[in-house]
Amino acid sequence: MKALIYEGPKKVAVREVEKPVPKEGQALIRIDYCGICGSDIGIYSGTHPRAKAPLVLGHEFVGVIEDISGDSNGFQVGDRVAPYPLISCGHCFACRNGRPHVCDTLKIIGIDLDGGVAEYVCCDTDVLFKVPASVSSKVAGIIEPLAVAVHTLHRAGFKPMDSIVIMGAGPIGALVGVVAKHSGASRIIISDFDQARLEMAAKLGFDAVNSKEANLTQYVRQATNGDGADIVFECTGAESAALEMTTPCRTDGMICLVGVHKAPHPVALADMHFRELNMTATRVYTKRDFGQAVELTQRISDELELLISHVLPLSDCANVFDMIHDPQVPTVKVMVDCRR
């Protein structure tokens, strides 16, 4: 079968590899689509701390069951499914206390073992979710990052009529906005400096602020009668955002770290004291979040479709990271069609 293989820093190739065989309790899934994630970009760059070459990339995938070995868990050949790609140890403190998604030794399909930018992959049947018939496979390829957004709103304690600020209009920031809109947000302000992403955010109904041309905090204060936003979602992981994220937030508001800050960054901690701000962070999602994301796709398919800027065939996707890094190519969500 064909697969996109990470072969080392800044080196990927589409190769013929052996088709996997399902073990007891696993399903063989013929992949329809697989999304390219920020963590895939990190792997390609050689900066991911766990991913080791050679590796089949991809954890945002959807496909059709072609074979099942052993316990089917109610699934059957022909079912279209989206697998929950997290693998937990079951023994650490987090796993023992109902938080397996932050397992001490968490592993993820496509990062720690071969993933879904391929024609086939094997997954345990107890992590599969059936995709609603009304949802296209291309849109269903966004279920995994959509689950990140669902979990993010849960972690932030979002409530209907909350006003929110999203720093970063990439796929995760945009999805946080979409979920918030459909959960009853009163106002959604999103910032970025990428014009294509800002235009996409405006089409989704958000107030889009170009952070190169306008001061985000001033914009938010003016839009909220001087109060500030109920929740600020920091989705960039950038140093400048870490320093600014306290100022658009109202007194006793919530700041939710979504983008991963891989290096220590300055934070205006005095703001945390003087306005009694709250801060939380988020990592991936629970199985419940994933299931909610699957159900939500039925209501927001048209908006999810807007996020997909490019679709590449598996047979010709070896240049996908060059395309994503090209400033002349305005990418938002890039999908690989694994049927071609």
Rank of each mutant, 00 (worst) to 15 (best):
S137K: 06
P49G: 04
K23Q: 15
M161P: 00
R187G: 04
S301M: 11
S186D: 14
V332K: 00
F75T: 07
G291E: 08
I324C: 02
F290K: 07
L314N: 13
I324Y: 12
C123L: 02
F290P: 00
L304P: 01
A13Q: 12
A229R: 09
V332M: 10
E144N: 07
A241R: 05
L312G: 06
S137Q: 05
G259W: 11
V332A: 10
F93S: 14
G98Q: 07
K212W: 12
G226A: 06
A185V: 11
I300F: 06
P83E: 15
V336Y: 12
Q76W: 09
G170W: 13
V267P: 00
T251L: 09
K11P: 00
A118Q: 07
L269G: 12
D162C: 07
S211W: 01
L4M: 12
V121Q: 01
Q328H: 13
P145G: 02
H182R: 12
I142A: 10
A94V: 11
I109E: 07
T282R: 01
T217N: 15
A180G: 05
V21R: 14
R96C: 11
G70L: 11
D194V: 06
D207I: 15
M1A: 11
A242T: 02
G70N: 05
D124H: 13
G115D: 05
M1T: 13
G115F: 09
I255Y: 04
A242E: 02
L175C: 04
R340N: 15
G35E: 10
E305C: 00
K130N: 03
D302M: 09
P264M: 06
V21S: 13
R187L: 15
T236H: 00
D230Q: 09
G157Y: 08
L216D: 03
L312D: 03
P100T: 04
L257C: 03
T247I: 00
P20D: 05
Y84K: 06
G253N: 08
N278Q: 12
M200S: 00
F274W: 15
G46H: 04
Y219M: 05
L269D: 05
I189V: 14
N210D: 15
V334A: 09
N210E: 01
N319V: 08
I172M: 08
L307M: 05
T246V: 14
